[in-house]
Amino acid sequence: MAAALHIYFRELQVHYFRLHLIVAATSATFALAGCETMKGIDTQSLTNVGGTAVKAMSLSDGDIVTMSVESCAAMDQKNKTAAASSDYAKRLDQVVKGMPATINGKSANYKVYLTEEVNAWAMANGCIRVYSGLMDLMNDDELRGVIGHEIGHVALGHSKTRMQTAYAASAVRGLAGATGNSALKALSESQAGELAEKFVNAQFSQSQESAADDYSFDLLTASKLERKGLVTGFQKLAKLSAGSAPGSSLMSSHPPSETRAAHMQKRLDKGG
């Protein structure tokens, strides 16, 4: 337990350090740019840019949920979503039966994106998106394992941290409204879409991935659902990552899929 807490606080320190680097880098950039570059720029807007990174760490749960609602809506608009009458949607409805209807008090909302990419993610507002490429790759038990993993990231607070990081990483985009350039102002208006992309493409830490794996295992155990899919699912991801398939946060995450499969198998062998 002490070792786990040590790792957690160490990663929290790293997270804070990264946010401070964002603020420092923003300030340094304009210091080097010189006064000519600063002409015509709203200095109050520049102050807000640096403040964005700092504010990220103080975002409330309500702020995170609101940002998740907007980000999820932006992703839904960008991607082709399977109709409720489609085979993909019907299959997903069957797969999630017996799984939580709420996460941290928020209703779980499942949809399928029609894309060959192998991925899935969940946000703090209960928005859970599964890609058809993942569904084509995995059987129902394996899909439940992945979905349980994504639910774990939300339930354990990882998705909140991920959104904070995404928010801080997009802080420089606030410069769009500081230059008076209409094209840049349009970029500012697309903040929700940009934030969503940064959230989806961000990676969790090693301890967060492992914790979400264990959460999924425990969730499936409590729900009396098959857990072997957690082993075979990671084995499939390991083979896929070794090939020429498109990149995916599921495959690029750490620890390696082979290690995660072995850990799940070890828990199965011990009877949970």
Score class of each variant (00 low, 15 high):
E36C: 03
V95S: 03
P256K: 04
G105F: 12
Q164H: 02
A186I: 08
M67Q: 09
S58T: 14
K80N: 09
Y167L: 05
Q94D: 06
W121H: 13
Y131N: 11
L184Y: 14
D141H: 05
T115A: 11
E197Y: 10
A4Q: 14
Y110E: 07
S257I: 01
K106D: 03
T165V: 12
S170R: 06
L220T: 09
Q206A: 11
A4K: 14
N125V: 05
G174M: 10
T165F: 10
H15T: 09
A261K: 08
N109D: 15
L21Q: 15
K55H: 03
G148T: 10
G148R: 09
P100C: 11
L220Y: 00
N201W: 02
A183L: 02
A24C: 00
M67E: 10
A101S: 15
S60E: 04
Y88D: 15
T43G: 00
Q77C: 03
D141N: 01
S45M: 11
Y8A: 14
A73L: 11
A222I: 04
S182G: 00
I7Y: 01
L5Y: 12
L21D: 13
Y110M: 11
A53F: 08
R91T: 09
I41S: 01
M123D: 02
T47K: 06
T115L: 09
C127R: 04
A262L: 07
A120W: 13
V200W: 04
T179N: 05
H254Y: 12
H158V: 11
N104M: 06
Y110L: 08
T29S: 10
L134R: 03
S45D: 01
S132K: 10
R267V: 12
K266P: 00
A73W: 00
S132H: 06
E189R: 04
K97F: 03
T47N: 09
Q235M: 14
G50Y: 01
W121Y: 15
L268I: 14
F234W: 15
L237G: 10
S45L: 04
A202S: 15
D214Q: 12
I7P: 00
S252Q: 08
E70Y: 02
S45F: 02
K106G: 00
G34Y: 14
T29R: 13
W121A: 07
L137F: 13
D42L: 01
L220K: 12
M1R: 13
G193H: 04
V65E: 08
E116C: 00
F204Y: 15
S58Q: 09
S210G: 01
G40E: 11
F30T: 08
Y167H: 13
G177W: 05
R91P: 07
R129A: 11
G98C: 07
A122W: 05
N109L: 07
V65I: 15
Q235S: 08
L143A: 02
G174Q: 07
K224N: 15
A196I: 07
A155Y: 13
Q164E: 14
A211H: 01
S85W: 05
N125W: 02
